[in-house]
Design a protein around this nucleic acid. Structure first.
Length: 488
DNA sequence: ATGTAC
């Protein structure tokens, strides 16, 4: 190890090699922590509690190799956003606090065969129609509003339910992780209260950083992989970012309370109560895993319904069938989950609960869990930037299994809190500037949400992606730029 | 992120 260090106000990071930093174990840390970032990003990461939080996560029993902070890391609830914790599934634990409140928050991208020329002049009509037809904002109102029995079916059957009920086509399932149905989902482990919160939110965007964006492809960096993903310059694509709404939030809350009641001993060992975990093999660990998998299915159906409704909006605006516009799902990535996966650790295969909170699975070419359509090039990874900066499509890099348990970053990462953002920006001004300077059309339920999500509150997504690419954990394939954005 | 309630 070289002797280059980075001093982050009391926490010293040792440089392992370019863009890889390590916090060596001290006190009750069970493993080192690693931060994958440039010095420029570290300067931002050190400004909040991220580094302290990534140190704290190494106290979780069963933490394997090292806890990971991605280049977009920032402070979260207990476990940092942009964090990966691979934890032994036999002797370790599963941590609802480390998955977070928005179970299976994630992004999906839909292709079209439209070009920017087809869309110019129609932006306002399109953004208005999307905003009118896709439920957004806090509280209830979904594309489907139904009873608890429907929620239960969705929880266990995932996108299969959407297919059977006319909200999906076969190809949608083939281009989603787990073909849109998470195994091991147990609706009985989701509380009545959570189901009640979910029943009128099936197909709804929510609020905060969730959005639907129409974008154009500005760059294809890798022609071969770009072709495999069906992406080319000037093409219109749609990006959808949302999660499991009140149902997932309630589920996280329910299990945090159960841990306080049943596993106070483990809780007492942790430096931060927000890392709450259930011991592997306990009834509660099994129950949470069943519930979390069910909430994952709910979030997939949520994104599916929003995508399918978007097809119908495009049909009306462009006056032709969506099939003719080739509006096909490219891929759906979950970035707030824990998943039982087999990884090679010190030469032997181990079952691990891989916690990815604000981190994206990024399996390389050839991995059996990559869908057939992309098996030869690697799993698509979608990294949204801000509504002013645009987003990236990557593919799982060949070093991801060795370095990061098959993971990479998930976004640009916040630079400042929501409260701070509202002091810095006024929503209306942000909206006007985006339209006048960049011809980006934004429509939101409240001006406060636009202020909270102003481009200036995010880190530089180009720098985040540059590091992922340089490390070979997620390789750059294409870049997009926003045209229309709707949000809560 | 999230039904500005337990």
């Amino acid at each position: 190890m070289s002797n280059v260090t980075f001093d982050a106000d009391g926490i010293t990071l040792e440089r392992v090699r370019e863009y890889v930093w390590e916090i060596p174990p001290e006190g009750d840390m069970r493993a080192p922590a690693r931060v994958f970032a440039s010095e420029a990003l570290l300067e931002e990461i050190k400004e909040d509690k991220t580094l302290e939080q990534i140190k704290n996560t190494t106290h979780l029993p069963g933490i394997t190799n090292y806890a990971i902070c991605m280049p977009d890391g920032h402070q979260g609830y207990g476990f940092p956003v942009g964090g990966v914790g691979a934890i032994d599934a036999e002797d370790g634990c599963i941590s609802p606090g480390s998955v977070g409140y928005d179970i299976n928050c994630g992004v999906r991208m839909m292709r079209t065969n439209l070009t920017y020329d087809d869309l110019q002049g129609r932006e306002e009509e399109l953004v208005d129609s999307l905003f009118t037809n896709i439920p957004s904002g806090l509280g209830g109102g979904g594309i489907v509003e139904s009873g608890v029995d429907t929620v239960e079916e969705i929880l266990e059957r995932g996108v299969d339910w959407a297919l059977e009920n006319g909200h999906a086509v076969e190809g949608d399932l083939l281009h989603c992780e787990d073909e849109g149905v998470r195994a091991g989902a147990d609706a009985d482990k989701i509380s009545q209260k959570a189901k009640d919160r979910g029943k009128n939110q099936i197909g709804s965007l929510g609020s905060g950083n969730h959005f639907l964006e129409v974008q154009r492809v500005t760059d294809v960096f890798d022609e071969e992989v770009g072709a495999a993903f069906g992406l080319e310059k000037d093409q219109i694509v749609v990006l959808i970012h949302c999660g499991s709404r009140g149902l997932g939030h309630q589920t996280c809350n329910d299990y945090l309370r159960k841990i306080e009641q049943q596993h106070q001993g483990l809780l007492d060992q942790l430096p931060d109560k927000e890392l709450a975990a259930a011991p592997a093999g306990s009834q509660l660990a099994e129950d949470y895993y069943g519930a979390m998998n069910a909430a994952i299915n709910f979030a997939w159906v949520n994104r599916q319904l929003i995508m399918h409704r978007t097809r119908q909006v495009f049909e009306r605006v462009f006056d032709r069938p969506w099939e003719e516009m080739e509006m096909e799902l490219l891929y759906d990535v979950a970035h707030n989950i824990a998943k039982k996966e087999t990884h090679t650790v010190g030469g032997e295969d181990r079952e691990l609960y891989v916690h990815r909170k604000g981190a994206t699975r990024a399996f390389p070419a050839g991995h059996p869990d990559v869908p057939n359509a992309y098996r030869d090039v690697g799993q698509p990874v979608i990294i949204p930037g801000s509504m002013g900066a645009g987003s990236y499509v990557l593919r799982g890099g060949e070093n991801s299994m060795d370095l990061t348990f098959g993971s990479t970053a998930h976004g640009a990462g916040r630079l400042m809190s929501r409260t701070q953002a509202k002091n810095e920006y006024w929503g209306g001004d942000v909206q006007d500037a985006l339209e006048e300077q960049d011809r980006i059309y934004v429509k939101a339920q409240s001006g406060a949400t636009i202020a909270e999500e102003a481009p200036g509150v995010y880190k530089d997504v180009d720098e985040v992606v540059r590091i992922s690419d340089a490390l070979g954990i997620g390789d750059k394939v294409a870049r997009t730029f926003p045209i229309c954005n709707i949000k809560g």
